[in-house]
Write a protein that binds this DNA or RNA. Structure first.
Lengths: 223, 223
DNA sequence: CCTACCGATCGGTAGG
DNA sequence: CCTACCGATCGGTAGG
């Protein structure tokens, strides 16, 4: 056993091992947070593009310039990394949706206008720049454990909560023809599926998409 | 080019090796067709449940009572098996849709009624008994080659073709409010997503689902 | 976080 | 189709 490797470089005993390039600030919770975020982002991108099982932890490590074993310093398993992507995606989505709603509610209470905001925001979360987290959550559900799925379902309920009263109001007013429960499922399907075909570089914009969806579900404003 | 392959049937020199349990009828194209179909069905089921990469060829072999190497007697690779599932799924879907349309068109030409038929049939293909092929095609697109994707896109166009005139007519009559192109994408999304949440054993029936979808997209009949 | 690893699994094949 | 395989890859870990 060769221990010690010569207290290298800068001072003292319990110094951080190998401070190679990046500085280490405060280690909240147990790790940097910087590198961890990079891993999350790269993992989300790769999981989305190639799928969870088709992505190796080596791929992810390479994407952030680490060695093959290093991701396991930040996450105890590949599955934990996947779950972290989904969890962060949902929390971010919930937060963004709350912001959008709060802002909108200052100027209107119209269910139609609120649905427009919810839909537009949903497309943004799903298709906007840097948004791989939610698609991964949507399309890799098979790859997490039942326990994790249950935990995520909680967050999903939280995300969907604001939709219910809006859809109920639109149904009551006759603008939404289908029954609320199935309408919600079908609407989310229409929106979520866009992650499969939408291309940011061509075709419709997110605004146009949101307009089309609104028109499809509840027709024209004046009507 | 080896044509002919030994006038088949049982008897003679080039007799089938090891006729263990099942009889071998005529070998059209190069193999049994019986066992091949079983492999396809089991593969579809497993690919759908666990995903392509999470399913091993050993899993598939075991599901039909074969040894681990035997699937490769019927398919030259795991990828070829996946593609065969998708291809068969699409051809079957196209055929079923044509039947449904032909039957419906004998009694009506109403775009609304035709859309109802298309939607109802789509749910059947997607969620009906024994329908794992189309979900696999929808959710494993990342796992096939670009060339295969192109070939499948051809079949998908063929499947979608009958929808276009129906949606165009509904748009012209004002029943469908969104522009046709985006409406088609959003509608397929709403339908296809149901493969993620629909449970044959509880909740709505396929008929109720189809009714709800129709109501969502183009409102009530009388309207 | 890097350096070496290891055990397990997997797709695929030769040869009958 | 079965029997034996093989090479490659992969998730993960010890130890510093």
């Amino acid at each position: 056993m060769e221990t010690a490797l010569a207290t290298d470089i800068e001072e003292e005993a319990a110094a951080p091992r190998r401070p190679r390039g990046r500085p280490r600030k405060t280690l909240d919770e147990r790790d940097d947070g910087n590198r961890r975020q990079e891993l999350l982002r790269s993992a989300a991108r790769l999981f989305r593009r190639k799928g969870f099982h088709a992505t190796s932890t080596r791929d992810i490590a390479a994407a952030v310039g680490m060695q093959s074993g290093s991701p396991f310093y930040h996450f105890k398993s590949k599955g934990a990394l996947l779950y972290a992507v989904m969890d962060e995606g949902m929390r971010s989505a919930i937060s963004k949706q709350a912001d959008a709603l709060q802002k909108a509610e200052r100027s209107t209470q119209s269910p139609r206008a609120l649905l427009a905001v919810l839909i537009r925001n949903h497309f943004d979360i799903l298709l906007g720049p840097g948004s791989d987290f939610i698609p991964v959550m949507l399309y890799e559900a098979r790859s997490i454990t039942a326990r994790q799925r249950t935990a995520l379902a909680q967050l999903q309920s939280e995300y969907e909560a604001p939709w219910a009263p809006v859809l109920a109001a639109l149904h009551a007013s006759g603008e939404l023809k289908a029954q609320v429960k199935l309408a919600r499922l079908l609407i989310f399907g229409a929106l979520n599926w866009s992650a499969q075909w939408f291309d940011r570089r061509k075709g419709a914009s997110l605004d146009e998409l949101a307009d089309a969806a609104l028109a499809l579900f509840i027709g024209e404003p004046g009507k």
